[in-house]
Design a protein around this nucleic acid. Structure first.
Lengths: 348, 348
DNA sequence: TCGCCGTGCTAATACGTATTAGCATCTATG
DNA sequence: CATAGATGCTAATACGTATTAGCACGGCGA
């Protein structure tokens, strides 16, 4: 190993070209303002030396002197490349990367953030947020206190997924779950379903709230629209509950639960959607093997990633005017698990 | 939007605590050298103010003044989160993230690197490599000229995958393809195979060279050991060629080609491995649907990611002594596509 | 000849931190 | 009481770039 060579700096270039460091900087930044004038010969001379030496400005010094880094932080509340839930983050990252590339920004993954109580923390002793010009927040549940702190600090950020206010409005790019669920409920009602059940996971996250709100909003004309909590493991109990209630359509928050529910129904000799319609309210977040084409909707994850970068760059350079909150529409998936309820099922 | 608040700096802390900026820095870095002494009361006072304000050192300034950033760059020659070949990078990134987290480093993805002639370039006008303390290079084929430049600049980096020298030895963490292929060839010979064919893709990448070398090295006692180039689309022609040659075992570089070859054989009523043994020389890089359990080996991608970070940190802080080149063993996969050649096949 | 303006560049400074030489002040020692 | 040494801190400077005020020079009009 040779001794680490010293960087070539603007001073070196300046000396070689017989000009001042300031001139090198001006040439480098192609400044042609009225009050900054460099003779073409001088400019060429400097550029030639730069080319010869292969000089490249130190981005760190640049950042210190000016304002921005062209670095976009990405904070994930869970590891960004998990083996388990890899399908959750991946589409977001894909969109983020694509747009970051387009605007010429690098992506900084905050892998150094320590895990406390099972989740990563943004704020800790050696907080490194300021490395980036701004930050994209990814995660099913985001700590409200941390959002509040971000707002207080005036640090530019965008959450992926709608977030409730936290000491002020939270900039976000989310998916319009409420509307998507509402449309599914309306479809069910058109098919003649009268008794509906929302099968949740007992979560308080905004994404869950929004789905429930969409359910409630559209189910006004139903005979019954109730909510229950369930886990994939308790599919049989959930099925009992649905049958006892006389529900003909289940709106299932979690994809894996829907899969388990369908399997349980089949085991009992029930048909889907003949005896029971099952609607899923989102893409699988973990790989679940199934051949069933569930009726539901698609979360525009990739587009959310893209637009989160777009919004963030706006927030950073201040060009974004007012409130930066976007809800993207979800595309409905027709599938084959929502049908007309079998009249054989006893109803008045 | 409020005006972007000025950062809290060490100067602010110093003023509040009634000390100098230097003292704040010393306290912050927990300096306890013999010639640096801070009274416990002073230290506490400073720490209290730091805690109150939630101050965090600006990593950019820190980097400029000192040497390191705790940022590890990741340069991918293709997008890091591709939709197509997502399975290629993902395991590497997983290992990289895991180890980076362990050593408390952040990960910088160089998404800003522009694409020229269909591939990303490390070196371009506004080269941002120096943002990171060092860099991990990912990609099937890495430009030798760029490696040479990296070596010349004395920039710390590690390639994932073995690389030929480029103006000096290239630090890398690779997989020992040669040995893995050799062992597979030996297995085939033990099974009685005498005529072997290496089905390559006509690539010149080191990973391809190594496989071929392993093939040649172990096939010495075979009656025939030849190499052909083939693409998945030309499976039928390849099969013809194999049969004409009387080869009983095909060592197929590309997973998709192996799948196509097996399908072609089945269409012709041939059995695998009865009539033809097929060995794959690596995991699929793109998702290929197949139910066949191919005989081959597993590339320790995750471990390669982990160790690349380990090696890089060593290179960066200079603690790594000599040459940093590691070849990790590949685990053989028994599978069911390598068997004893059917004696019915005409051979002398 | 003087003043004025346009041109081409440089000196000085800021950005926020780390480091080091060295200045006071106090304590122990002779 | 003078002095040596330890102690606790600060002033100064470096890191590499961007920015801005302003200097020196030459040409031109009056």
């Amino acid at each position: 190993m040779t001794a680490p060579l010293r960087r070539v700096t603007q001073r070196d270039i300046a000396r070689m070209a017989g000009v001042s460091q300031a001139t090198v900087s001006l040439v480098l930044n192609n400044r042609t303002d009225a009050d900054v004038r460099i003779a073409p010969e001088t400019r060429d001379r400097v550029l030639r030396v730069i080319a010869e030496t292969g000089y490249a400005a130190d981005p760190v010094a640049r950042r210190l002197a000016s304002r921005f880094n062209r670095i976009i932080g990405v904070f994930t509340y869970e590891p960004a490349f998990p083996s388990g839930s890899r399908d959750f983050f991946h589409p977001f990252l894909l969109g983020i990367e694509e747009y970051a590339e387009r605007v010429g920004c690098d992506l900084l993954l905050f892998t150094s953030a320590p895990v406390v109580d099972g989740r990563r923390r943004i704020f800790h002793q050696d907080n490194r947020l300021r490395l980036a010009d701004g930050c994209i927040l990814l995660g099913r549940e985001i700590d409200g206190a941390e959002l509040q702190r971000l707002n207080g600090d005036g640090y530019p950020y965008v959450a992926v997924g709608r977030r409730d206010d936290a000491g002020g409005p939270v900039p976000y790019v989310g998916a319009d779950y409420a509307s998507a669920v509402s449309r599914l409920v309306e479809t069910a009602l058109r098919h003649g379903h009268r008794r509906l059940t929302y099968v949740g996971m007992g979560m308080t996250a905004e994404s869950s709230q929004d789905r429930r709100q969409g359910f409630v909003a559209a189910a006004g004309t139903a005979e019954s629209a109730r909510q229950v909590a369930a886990a994939p493991g308790a599919a049989d109990a959930t099925l009992d509950d649905l049958l006892a209630d006389g529900s003909t359509a289940a709106f299932v928050e979690d994809f894996a639960t829907a899969v388990a529910l369908e399997a349980a129904a089949r085991r009992r000799g029930l048909t889907v959607p003949g005896d029971l319609s099952i609607v899923t309210l989102g893409d699988p977040t973990v790989p679940v093997p199934t051949d069933i084409a569930f009726t539901g909707f698609r979360i525009p994850r990739e587009e959310m990633g893209r637009q989160s970068v777009e919004v963030l760059t706006g927030v950073i350079d201040g060009s974004a005017g007012g409130l930066q909150q976007r809800l993207l529409p979800c595309e409905l998936v027709e599938g084959s698990t929502l049908g007309t309820p079998d009249p054989a099922v006893d109803r008045p």
